[in-house]
Amino acid sequence: MLFGGTNPLYGKTLSYLTEDPDEPMMSFHLWNGAAPGADAPWPPEQEQPLLLAVRVEGGVFGESFAFTPQGERQRRAIAASCA
Score class of each variant (00 low, 15 high):
residue 72 E to Y: 11
residue 11 G to T: 13
residue 74 Q to G: 01
residue 61 F to A: 10
residue 54 V to R: 06
residue 44 P to Y: 05
residue 5 G to W: 09
residue 13 T to E: 09
residue 60 V to A: 04
residue 13 T to D: 10
residue 80 A to S: 15
residue 37 G to F: 02
residue 57 E to V: 07
residue 55 R to W: 02
residue 81 S to L: 09
residue 64 S to E: 01
residue 52 L to R: 04
residue 27 S to Q: 11
residue 35 A to Y: 06
residue 26 M to L: 13
residue 32 N to S: 12
residue 39 D to P: 03
residue 78 I to D: 14
residue 65 F to I: 06
residue 78 I to M: 15
residue 17 L to V: 10
residue 40 A to H: 03
residue 83 A to L: 08
residue 75 R to S: 06
residue 68 T to P: 04
residue 83 A to F: 01
residue 79 A to D: 14
residue 68 T to N: 09
residue 60 V to I: 12
residue 34 A to Y: 06
residue 36 P to W: 08
residue 13 T to W: 03
residue 28 F to Q: 03
residue 19 E to Y: 10
residue 51 L to C: 02
residue 51 L to H: 07
residue 44 P to C: 13
residue 35 A to L: 08
residue 55 R to M: 05
residue 60 V to F: 01
residue 37 G to Q: 06
residue 78 I to R: 15
residue 61 F to Y: 13
residue 66 A to W: 11
residue 66 A to R: 15
residue 68 T to G: 12
residue 6 T to S: 10
residue 12 K to A: 04
residue 27 S to I: 02
residue 65 F to N: 05
residue 11 G to S: 15
residue 43 P to T: 10
residue 9 L to Y: 07
residue 49 P to L: 10
residue 57 E to T: 01
residue 72 E to A: 11
residue 31 W to H: 12
residue 56 V to K: 06
residue 26 M to C: 13
residue 57 E to F: 02
residue 17 L to E: 12
residue 63 E to Q: 12
residue 54 V to W: 00
residue 36 P to E: 07
residue 51 L to T: 07
residue 26 M to S: 08
residue 55 R to F: 05
residue 48 Q to N: 14
residue 23 E to C: 07
residue 59 G to D: 00
residue 60 V to S: 02
residue 29 H to Y: 12
residue 29 H to L: 00
residue 50 L to Y: 06
residue 75 R to C: 02
residue 5 G to T: 14
residue 19 E to F: 12
residue 23 E to H: 15
residue 28 F to L: 10
residue 62 G to A: 12
residue 16 Y to K: 11
residue 19 E to Q: 13
residue 75 R to K: 08
residue 23 E to A: 14
residue 56 V to L: 07
residue 31 W to Y: 09
residue 44 P to E: 09
residue 75 R to T: 04
residue 79 A to K: 14
residue 42 W to A: 00
residue 65 F to L: 07
residue 73 R to F: 04
residue 4 G to T: 09
residue 2 L to W: 05
residue 54 V to P: 01
residue 19 E to I: 11
residue 80 A to H: 15
residue 66 A to Q: 14
residue 6 T to H: 12
residue 64 S to M: 09
residue 23 E to M: 11
residue 46 Q to H: 14
residue 54 V to S: 08
residue 12 K to D: 08
residue 66 A to D: 11
residue 42 W to K: 02
residue 79 A to M: 13
residue 74 Q to T: 12
residue 58 G to C: 08
residue 74 Q to A: 11
residue 57 E to C: 06
residue 14 L to C: 07
residue 59 G to R: 04
residue 21 P to Y: 07
residue 65 F to P: 00
residue 13 T to S: 13
residue 10 Y to A: 10
residue 68 T to W: 02
residue 65 F to W: 07
residue 83 A to M: 09
residue 13 T to K: 14
residue 49 P to Y: 02
residue 7 N to R: 11
